[in-house]
């Protein structure tokens, strides 16, 4: 049975303990040496303390990582989205740069030519492998009519055929039903340039004079004898010239100077007759 001291004595006891601890703390605060007992206990407890400290540090570190992991995941997702956006932006900017270069080139070509021309975008192509035509985003409402010349950077592209209100079909010069009057820049020989097919991407060259002198690499330009193109526009370069018996001319094929396979924008010649010659 525990005997509890009376209330008055308890208070005296607390005060005495407080004073004793205060005195011990005061007396040992500045000491430089520990007692042997203290030293022994400290040494024995050190490994346990180290172990606990390591566990604490490890837990703290990993807990921090665990806490940060969610943030990292969120940050990673944000950054990933940002990278994707920037990549898209980059692709778009590259596209603008390419388009800009193309338009600069086209503008130079337009100024060089000196005719009123209407810029148009290519919106579709013939779905087959034989006929070669493109659809442009200009039509009757923009003043287009069938039979207008169409050019692009590099030279002749073709001519308008069927014209709708807002669109027009342009028959390319490599279409089998296309024929353009041309002249060899080197010799001045008149030739007829007839389309071969979409997939071949070439045109057949037929000389209009008996002893035509045509060689591989010759540049053919518009002759100015038709009403579609002004004189002197580049049509293409001869890539194959075959000789017949006794060295006579058998046939030639021409590669268009305009890149017809990669047309994105073209110009419709709005005032061909002002130029003097017609295609």
């Amino acid at each position: 049975m525990v005997v509890r001291p009376p209330e008055g004595q308890r208070i005296i006891l607390y005060v005495a303990m407080f004073l004793f601890l205060a005195a011990v703390l005061h007396l040992t605060a500045e000491r430089e040496h520990v007692t042997d007992l203290e030293s022994f206990l400290a040494d024995r407890l050190a490994p346990i303390q180290r172990g606990l400290a390591n566990i604490g540090a490890w837990t703290a570190k990993n807990w921090q990582a665990l806490v940060e992991w969610r943030d990292l995941k969120e940050t990673n997702e944000k950054l990933r989205t940002q990278v994707e956006l920037l990549q898209t932006e980059n692709i778009r900017l590259r596209e603008y740069r390419r388009e800009n270069a193309w338009l600069r080139e086209a503008l130079g070509f337009r100024q060089e030519l000196g005719y009123a021309m209407l810029p148009a975008q290519v919106i579709a192509r013939d779905p087959g492998n034989w006929l070669s035509s493109i659809i442009i985003d200009l039509g009757e409402e923009d003043g287009l009519e069938p039979g207008m010349g169409v050019v692009g950077p590099g030279g002749v592209v073709g001519s308008t055929r069927s014209v709708a209100k807002k669109t027009a079909r342009v028959m390319l010069m490599i279409d089998p039903s296309s024929a353009i009057g041309g002249v060899s820049q080197r010799t001045g020989d008149l030739v007829l340039v007839e389309g071969l097919s979409e997939s071949a991407g070439l045109a057949r060259v037929k000389p209009l004079v008996r002893d035509a002198d045509l060689k591989q690499g010759d540049i053919i330009v518009t002759s100015g004898l038709s009403v579609i193109f002004p004189k002197g526009l580049p049509i293409g370069r001869l890539v194959t010239v075959t000789a017949g018996d006794y060295g006579s001319f058998a046939g030639a094929f021409l590669e268009p100077t305009a890149d017809l396979a990669r047309l994105e924008y073209v110009f419709v010649i709005a005032s061909p007759k002002e130029g003097g010659g017609d295609g």
Binding site: S177, S197, S199
Partner: peptide
């Protein structure tokens, strides 16, 4: 219909 599709390339295509 009058189109002159070249026989040179017909087989290939």
């Amino acid at each position: 219909s009058g189109l002159t599709i070249g026989s040179e390339i017909m087989g290939n295509v």
